[in-house]
Design a protein around this nucleic acid. Structure first.
Lengths: 197, 197
DNA sequence: CCTACCGATCGGTAGG
DNA sequence: CCTACCGATCGGTAGG
């Protein structure tokens, strides 16, 4: 292994460390409630050092959001493009999404959902490129469900109501208390889909 | 009118001004993204003066939330206790709730929803007394809908999924763009309720 | 990535 | 409710 490759690997690890820790802190305390010093402390750096990896605190926020989208998109795309029946496809997407927003260490998308307003318009536009792809996946599935007679509505509001029901879980779900992810997905399917005649 | 009564009225007005402005700013920028100076400026006070009306910034946050709950509870209670059929009761509660979180100047409950984590545990406990009453109303209606065959699920998760679908609108609804409140309420009824056989 | 630091801003207070 | 202020903290930077 070359020395240069080792250095790059270390750099990537430190950057990844910062993103993971920042995601957790942003989720717990919010973007404005988290300081650069909190983040630096949590990875064992001095307070000025995160700026060696990121130009600004805002850039960390945008990178956290993009990291979450890049990690979540392939799974979601595979489910929607797959050959499952609409009902099973919905269950799988809901289940995968719950994992994305509720599982231990999965703090990236919750930050996107609830600190979106903290992004400057320019960075918002950048993250939107990926976010739009994620939303489009859901929109496509909503249409498929509607055509299959499984959903009462088509359109954007239908998608937003569904995603809201799922995303809101970030504010109430606590691991080990009450329903687990499978049960919540099951219940969403039962509540929102009608059995196709 | 006595002088004392006039002074009290003025005091109440200034306090109410602070709450209304704080609610709007907290909603737009978040609790941690809003400064006491922002709030004071917006009502034409100096930066130290809000502390004549409230002990701390946290107390303003708690008061904003309680104000929203006190304003919203009577309407919601009347709907749930009223004699409408379950389906119409649901439509009316959803419609009223949309008004509570989306109408111009109705910034109090959105702050409760999305800055809950900014409250200290002690104040959280205080606000929870009123919040629990609001949640219980929804829970009662969920049970009524389930028994009437209008809803596929009963229980807490069912309630949270429904409230999530509605509450999430705070993050996407823009007045004058897309569906209006009546249309959104209509669509929620169509999507979540099954026509009782 | 650390040291050492800066200018700006923050929540809150004493005294009137 | 204003004046005048405080100690603490903030995001960010220069130089190494």
């Amino acid at each position: 292994m070359s020395g240069a490759a080792a250095v790059v690997a270390v750099d990537n690890n430190r950057r990844a460390d910062l993103l993971r820790v920042a995601a957790r802190l942003f989720r717990e305390r919010g973007f404005d409630g988290t300081t650069i010093r909190d983040i630096a402390d949590a990875v064992g750096m001095r307070s000025g050092s995160p700026f060696y990896h990121f130009k600004s605190k805002q850039e960390i926020l945008a990178a956290v959001m993009e990291e979450g989208l890049v990690a979540g998109l392939p799974t979601a795309e595979a489910i929607v493009a797959g050959g499952l029946a609409p009902r099973e496809k919905f269950r799988a997407l809901v289940r995968a999404h719950l994992e994305t927003v509720l599982a231990e260490g999965h703090d990236f998308i919750p930050v996107l959902l609830y600190d979106w307003r903290c992004l400057t318009p320019l960075l918002r536009q950048r993250v939107l490129v990926l976010r739009d792809r994620y939303d489009q996946l859901w929109q496509d599935l909503v249409t498929e469900l509607y055509r299959a007679g499984e959903l009462a509505s088509d359109g954007k509001v239908a998608r937003l109501l569904l995603m809201g029901a799922i995303n809101y879980s970030v504010l109430w779900y606590r691991e080990g208390q009450g329903s687990d992810l499978d049960q919540i997905a099951q219940e969403a399917v039962a509540m929102f889909l009608r059995r196709a005649a």
